[in-house]
């Protein structure tokens, strides 16, 4: 038995090692003064981070990414929440249709959608290519399956019908009941879903690069454009990006586990 448990521990640590390795190398590289043709860096420094965080182009790209992601998520919530409520309360049978629809953003790779989007929004009344607005629209579709699934699970857990009946008995309109009874009950699930969606939206590159590129340079596009610069500088950028993702997912997990915050 002891030998078996040794084996399992070894496998798990190996798995962890494989997953950590690229990140650890990047972290060390971002802290190195110089590191070439030797096993370990010549010296350690925080210089690359200082340089990165005082670089106006990086700060601008980071700000744009935050803005686009936050905008897309706010927009997605605005569209998805009422739609979900109407489906759950009035037309439960539409849920099956929705479950098929939300498979599309999963099944169709962004590079495929981009072909159509580029032609449709290149000119005419909806000349959105090259503007952040098209990213907000596209990110809404990427976040949708995730938001919908997460919120459906939450809605099923709260006995929607009983809550609504109680609110109606007390004289609230359907609108008022949805807003001040159902919504607060969904708050925690919503915040967690939004945070997790944010963590993958900020890493989105395909739409950002193909539809907008340098005309509204977001974080990932900036990172890609820095490819010919110093490897230490881009490493500091990669680690900074990963730290933001780490922070957001950590907050989401904390919130998810903490029973008192609901």
């Amino acid at each position: 038995m002891a030998r078996a448990s040794m084996y399992h521990r070894l496998v798990v640590w190996l798995l962890l090692l494989v997953l950590v390795l690229p990140l650890a190398a990047t972290l060390l590289y971002s802290l190195a003064t110089q590191w070439s043709a030797s096993l370990l860096p010549a010296g350690l420094t925080f210089d690359w981070y200082l340089r990165l965080w005082s670089e106006p182009r990086f700060l601008a790209a980071f700000g744009r990414s935050l803005l686009v992601c936050a905008g897309a998520l706010a927009f997605a919530c605005l569209l998805v929440l009422p739609a979900m409520f109407v489906i759950a309360y009035h037309f439960p049978r539409l849920d099956a249709v929705m479950n098929v629809l939300i498979l599309l953003p999963f099944a169709v790779p962004p590079v495929v959608s981009s072909v159509g989007l580029l032609q449709l929004f290149a000119g005419g009344p909806l000349a959105l290519v090259g503007t952040p607005w098209i990213l907000i629209g596209c990110y809404f579709t990427i976040a949708l399956p995730f938001l919908y699934r997460a919120l459906t699970n939450n809605l099923q857990a709260i006995e929607l019908r009983d809550l609504m009946d109680a609110a109606h008995l007390l004289g609230a309109s359907t609108f008022r009941a949805a807003l001040s009874v159902v919504l607060p009950n969904l708050r925690k699930g919503l915040v967690v879903a939004v945070l997790l969606s944010f963590s993958f939206l900020i890493g989105e590159f395909v739409f950002a690069n193909l539809l907008v590129g340098t005309r509204y340079e977001t974080l990932q596009v900036y990172l890609n454009n820095m490819r010919n610069g110093s490897g230490h500088f881009t490493s500091a950028l990669v680690i900074s990006y990963f730290m933001v993702v780490l922070l957001v997912t950590w907050a989401a997990n904390r919130l998810n586990r903490d029973p008192s915050s609901s």
Partner: peptide, 13 residues
């Protein structure tokens, strides 16, 4: 979440 451009750069290093 570690995929795409950052992953490619990490692998180059």
């Amino acid at each position: 979440n570690f995929a795409g451009v950052p992953l490619a750069f990490a692998f180059i290093i």
